[in-house]
Amino acid sequence: MKKHSIEFKLNGDIVKAEVLPNKSLLDFLRSDMGIKSPKVGCDRGDCGACTVLMNGKTVRSCLVLAVEADGCEIVTCEGANANKLTQKLQKKFHEKNAFQCGFCAPGVILSATELLSENPKAGREEIKEAISGNLCRCTGYEPIVEAIEEAAKK
């Protein structure tokens, strides 16, 4: 396999690297970049734990190849704090004690960030739809939905 040089923006910084075609973006972020907020859940696109923002849109980094990130802008939870919206969401999640183990949290936070940046006044149904691809084994979703609802209100 031939290595490819890629250059992309990761949480605001330019990253240059050489990657093999069969390396997933998730693997690359976690093992090469030391970015650990995207989690390895199912590794097959079902759970949303590996969610990152790619050019502002949530994607499942386990289904994206690292080579495909060339020229893109990738934001993970580590860098999303720079976004006011994410800060607001995080505050609400905190207040509501919305997570338990927190494994799903980075994915949920990014999905909610994408939703509110496109639809700042999103209602309950839209919130549920937006996080329907983020599985949570702990909370039963109620506090998560409530926290996003509150962030959408103000």
Partner: peptide
């Protein structure tokens, strides 16, 4: 189709 994160791709 699936969920937002999948539909985006």
């Amino acid at each position: 189709v699936a969920s937002v994160g999948v539909r985006n791709r």
